[in-house]
Design a binder for these strands. Sequence first.
DNA 1: ACATTGAGGACCATTCTAGTCCCCATTAAA
DNA 2: TTTAATGGGGACTAGAATGGTCCTCAATGT
Lengths: 155, 155
Amino acid sequence: MLRLSKMSDYAAVVMAHIARYPEQAHAAAELSEAVGVPRPTVSKTLKMLMHAGLLQSRRGAQGGYRLTRTPIEISVSEIIEAIEGPVAMTECSQAEGECGLAATCGVADNWQRVSMAIRQFLDSVTLADLAQKTPIKMPVMLPIQSVSLASISDA
Amino acid sequence: MLRLSKMSDYAAVVMAHIARYPEQAHAAAELSEAVGVPRPTVSKTLKMLMHAGLLQSRRGAQGGYRLTRTPIEISVSEIIEAIEGPVAMTECSQAEGECGLAATCGVADNWQRVSMAIRQFLDSVTLADLAQKTPIKMPVMLPIQSVSLASISDA
DNA sequence: ACATTGAGGACCATTCTAGTCCCCATTAAA
DNA sequence: TTTAATGGGGACTAGAATGGTCCTCAATGT
């Protein structure tokens, strides 16, 4: 896993499409066609993105959706969260305590750290990155073992 | 999302438990109790981990499960994959082409790169990291924008 | 007025998930 | 050699999540 639902996938594609023409208002029908996803489904996605505050809408003729911020100011994690709720790998890494297993598992702490790292990474990728034609570059991902223990002190 | 199924969660906890006493054989019943998860469910998890080659089993009295490798040699991504199959964020980032939307989406490439980065990160976290009591340190996660474009050249 | 376009929410079908159970094979120990 | 412990394999089920559809109402530009 680390699977992303299809809806999130659509969301990313739709957002990227809008990001390429940020000035225009994009109607659901237009986006549906551009992206090749049935209208009602795109609509649903758009509504979710709107509720999350990533899009603003205007009804009526010439209406449609626009970004509320510039593509650089929107992170991939925000898009994902708009659709799926808080990004976390496991139950215990999102809810406070009450994991049930917490006492016995002895992994919670480290699990949460892993989750956090991924989360931070996703924060750093922007919609602009996604939308651009030339492939984005991967961030430097140092193997966890090679990190000097002092670099991020907690423990 | 980036949600991990409960099964994967169990798997991680169980593996960590075994990793703390690598010499002994651990019976399903023992693990079930240690971890607080019903026996049949733990069993199922163990079977999956075995099929993936992360555990070896011995039947009969005094039997049970052991690691096939040392905790340092087992990565978190392997554990996850043992349960959920290939780790990938989206359909198109795992299957070759034929995403259907590929033509229109224009995001596939970048999406795959994001997925790859996470994947690599998960590769770098080991079972030993998970199992240790003192919290593991986070790897350095440079914001994607700050990475010099030359550092990983493709495009 | 009227055509366009989104809002809101009900609804359904299918898949996935978690979890259970049963019976057989293997192995150690009594 | 019998017995008890232990995993192997797989079928099965209930419930939830997912993806997707549809309908009616509200807003807004022409």
